[in-house]
């Protein structure tokens, strides 16, 4: 089974990194959002520093949501999803592996880009590492929760904005603790540990539960 998992993971990441795979688009979108924020709120560096963590997190959230439709759509359309369900792997495991690969190709670039973007938002250099850490702890939760939305809408042709609408309320806890953790990391020695731990807890919870819910939703698309 491990071999199958590894192979699926490699397939997902390879496909995502190819041209048209859309992997890096998330990071570019992230950059775009951060770049246009000052046009909306003004270039005051103090203000940007105060809302910097929020901008980073909302940007990460939107970038994750944008990329979710490529999680199942293409495979569903050309039938690979049906083939995958016929392997020995349980559907929940397949979903988990796909989601993990999706995070590696979409979420991880966000985490790597975050310190650079943090500089643009006047975040202290000392805090940049911590910013990346909090995003690393929380973006998997965003991806995995988003997987549920992607699974629910896989068979719909007019999906469009439906996945963000369905998923955003569910990601609010991640947003709350993520921004709180990032804020704590940015503004100094206040305990990062509490929100960070809760954030990690939310991620673990979603990594375990979301594939089950998403697999159940996918099965409905096969009926």
């Amino acid at each position: 089974m491990i071999g199958a998992i590894a192979m699926l993971f490699r397939r997902e990441t390879t496909l995502a990194l190819r041209v048209g795979g859309g992997a890096m688009m998330g990071a570019v979108f992230f950059l775009t959002i951060v770049a246009i924020m000052p046009f909306a709120v003004g270039p005051d560096l103090n203000l940007l520093q105060r809302i910097g963590p929020a901008i980073l997190w909302v940007g990460a959230l939107l970038a994750t949501l944008i990329g979710l439709d490529r999680l199942f759509q293409a495979d569903h359309e050309d039938g690979s999803l049906d083939l995958l369900t016929m392997t020995e792997l349980p559907l929940a495991v397949i979903v988990a592996v796909k989601a993990a690969a999706h995070w590696v190709t979409t979420g991880l670039p966000l985490v790597i880009a975050a310190p650079l973007l943090g500089l643009m938002l006047n975040v202290e250099p000392a805090a940049l590492g911590a910013v990346a850490l909090t995003l690393a702890a929380g973006t998997p939760a965003l991806t995995f929760i988003g997987t549920i939305g992607a699974a629910l809408t896989v068979a719909l042709r007019r999906g469009g904005l439906l996945v963000p609408i369905l998923i955003l309320p569910l990601t609010v806890p991640v947003l709350i603790f993520g921004v709180s953790a990032t804020n704590a990391a940015v503004t100094g020695p206040m305990a990062v540990s509490t929100p960070l731990t809760i954030l990690a807890g939310l991620t673990l919870l979603s990594v375990v539960l979301a594939p089950i819910a998403a697999a159940a939703a996918l099965r409905l698309a096969f009926d």
Binding site: I148, L152, P169, I176, A213, A217
Partner: peptide, 25 residues
Amino acid sequence: ARPVAILALVGFVNIPIIKFSVDWW
């Protein structure tokens, strides 16, 4: 019917988490 049922239950499970987070926030 069933996709919406899944979404409703996922949301239902989320409600205490959301409540806790929003209270904390």
